[in-house]
């Protein structure tokens, strides 16, 4: 590790939650405006976390908060791997471990609401994971390696050749940010589904840690969108921001659906367009440099 990478790590550790916090605040502000309300201040997520940290920690079993820490660590790890242009498959794998930690944490509490929420989150993983893998496969077909560095250093953006996978990834973004219509495992704001889904039993500092991990996750997920046009970081960031705003608007104009509905959507439509895209890449044999 040279000086530069240490600096990058510190920058990501400090910068990502600040960006994530602002993104969450903007989300709440836009949501309020779309509903004709004034809305909370932009820094509201920060106040929430600060408050949660000062509350008592009420746990139902000793391991519950351990899973939260695992979740946080693996989210940070996957974000760092993304920043350091690591192997795309490995990033997806590490990111899945993070999601699983939250599920196991929810299951371990024994609360029926948390359990139902956790099993729904498993369904969510089942529906977005194949698309993530196909996304990695597209990167492989385009560059000949799973390493992200090949994409990030290339001069042509991969969005040119993967428009269909991009559309599928927008849905993945929607599912992973737990926004309506796919917010049934747990949800943000005051939306209630099964009390609070798999996060029902968390309180105080434990819940604050989850919120902070969410901030990192916001940056990570928009980072995955950024990769589509990494050739020009400015355009890439713009696409990521527009995608995020699109998800917020979709959140406000749609109603929650059954999880079966989401599974059907992703395993038919999203998977189909992704496979068509992959087939095109395979047959045409295009490469980017």
């Amino acid at each position: 590790m040279d000086m530069n990478s240490v600096l990058t790590v510190v920058l990501v550790l400090i910068g990502a939650p600040i960006i994530g916090c602002l993104a969450a605040g903007i989300d709440r502000k836009i949501t309020a405006r779309l509903q004709g309300r004034v809305g909370p201040p932009i820094l509201q997520p920060y106040y929430d976390v600060k408050k949660l940290l000062s509350k008592d920690n009420m746990i139902v079993n000793g391991s519950q908060n351990f899973y939260v820490v695992v979740y946080l660590i693996f989210i940070i790890l996957s974000l760092l791997m993304l920043v350091f242009k690591a192997d795309m498959l490995m990033i997806i794998f590490v990111y899945t471990v993070a999601s699983l930690a939250l599920i196991v944490g929810g299951m371990s509490t024994g609360s029926p609401y948390a359990r139902a929420g956790s099993s729904r989150e498993i369904m969510a993983i089942l529906s977005y994971e194949p698309i993530l893998i196909l996304y990695a496969l597209a990167i492989y077909l385009l560059t000949g390696t799973f390493k992200l560095s090949a994409v990030l250093d290339a001069s042509t953006p991969i969005l040119m050749y993967t428009p269909l996978i991009f559309i599928a990834m927008l849905f993945v973004l929607n599912i992973k940010l737990k926004k309506s219509p796919f917010d049934y495992s747990t949800s943000h704001h005051a939306h209630q589904e099964l009390v609070k889904g798999m996060l029902t039993e968390y309180s105080g500092p434990g819940f604050a840690t989850i919120e902070i991990a969410h901030f990192y996750e916001y940056v990570f997920l928009t980072g995955l969108i950024f990769v589509f046009w990494a050739a020009n970081p400015l355009i890439g960031a713009l696409i990521a921001i527009v995608a995020y705003l699109l998800v917020i608007v979709i959140d406000n104009i749609t109603a929650r659906v059954y999880w079966q509905w989401m599974l059907k959507l992703s395993w038919t439509f999203l998977l189909a367009i992704s496979i068509v895209n992959i087939a095109f890449l395979y047959i045409s044999g295009v490469k980017i440099v």
Binding site: A32, G36, G39, P40, Q44, K196, T200
Partner: peptide, 23 residues
């Protein structure tokens, strides 16, 4: 209180579902 007319959320008020996260 939570509707647009009174908008309690401008004070940060959220109607949370679970007692474990309530104040």
């Amino acid at each position: 209180c939570l509707t647009p007319l009174y908008d309690a959320e401008r004070f940060g008020v959220l109607n949370i579902g679970t007692p474990k996260q309530a104040d």
